[in-house]
């Protein structure tokens, strides 16, 4: 028997609606920061080009790969819980957290390298933007990992299943936003010249 042709109802947003307002607010803040960076760079092209060369491009690129791969495992976790595979969901979230920790570690080493060279927020305009932008993102990575970790705990207690997985989608959406922001931040700060 053929299914009745019905207008395709738009799919609901994954997870809780509230997280999407929070995500969009964060995206707006980052967009303003990106534009502020771009405008300030336009006024100090030589300075930005000169000191951009001191950044560790390899660290920036590897960090991008770590975040993308972490997001990939978070997607796998969401797929697993939708198929009622709780253990696979937990495993994928733990791997994602591992990649997230790798990002934080590599970023910390990058900062340690700069701080030990005597560079601070007040060294010059470029470093002020580089440090404040990437540190602001760093804090979001930490918050994202706290959210994912809380989901792992709840999943272990049996809170989530195929019929109850909004919490996993909510955390996943936030984590993907952290990745989405870095996708623009990396070329803007490390590469564009």
């Amino acid at each position: 028997m053929n299914e009745p042709i019905t207008l395709q109802e738009p799919k609901l947003l994954p997870g809780d609606l509230a997280i999407w307002f929070f995500i969009f607010m964060e995206l707006l803040v980052f967009a303003i920061a990106f534009i502020a960076y771009a405008v300030t760079r336009a006024q100090n092209v030589a300075l930005f080009n000169e000191f951009q060369l001191t950044l560790n491009k390899e660290s920036g690129a590897v960090n991008t790969l770590l975040l993308i791969t972490s997001s990939y495992f978070v997607v796998r976790a969401v797929h697993a819980i939708k198929l009622d595979r709780v253990k696979a969901c937990i495993t994928n979230l733990n791997i994602a957290l591992g990649f997230g920790a790798g990002f934080l570690l590599l970023k910390s080493l990058e900062y340690y390298d700069k701080f030990s060279a005597g560079i601070t927020l007040s060294t010059n305009t470029f470093y002020m933007f580089y440090l404040s932008l990437t540190m602001f993102h760093f804090l979001h990575v930490i918050l994202g990992m706290i959210i994912l970790f809380a989901i792992v705990i709840k999943a272990k207690r049996g809170h989530y299943s195929a019929n109850n997985h909004y919490g996993v989608e909510t955390g996943a959406s936030y984590w993907h936003m952290v990745d989405l922001v870095w996708i623009i931040l990396f070329p803007l700060v490390y590469i564009i010249r």
């Binding site: 395709q8 738009p10 799919k11 609901l12 947003l13 994954p14 993308i68 997001s71 990939y72 978070v74 997607v75 969401v78 996943a172 959406s173 993907h176 936003m177 990745d179 989405l180 996708i183 623009i184 070329p187 590469i191 564009i192």
Partner: peptide, 24 residues
């Protein structure tokens, strides 16, 4: 560089965030 970022951003929004069929 920016087009690459847009392509990657689109993949994240569409396939990682799974917003392919949500409201316009």
């Amino acid at each position: 560089l920016l087009l690459t970022a847009v392509v990657k951003g689109t993949l994240i929004i569409r396939d990682f965030m799974e917003l392919r069929d949500v409201s316009l």
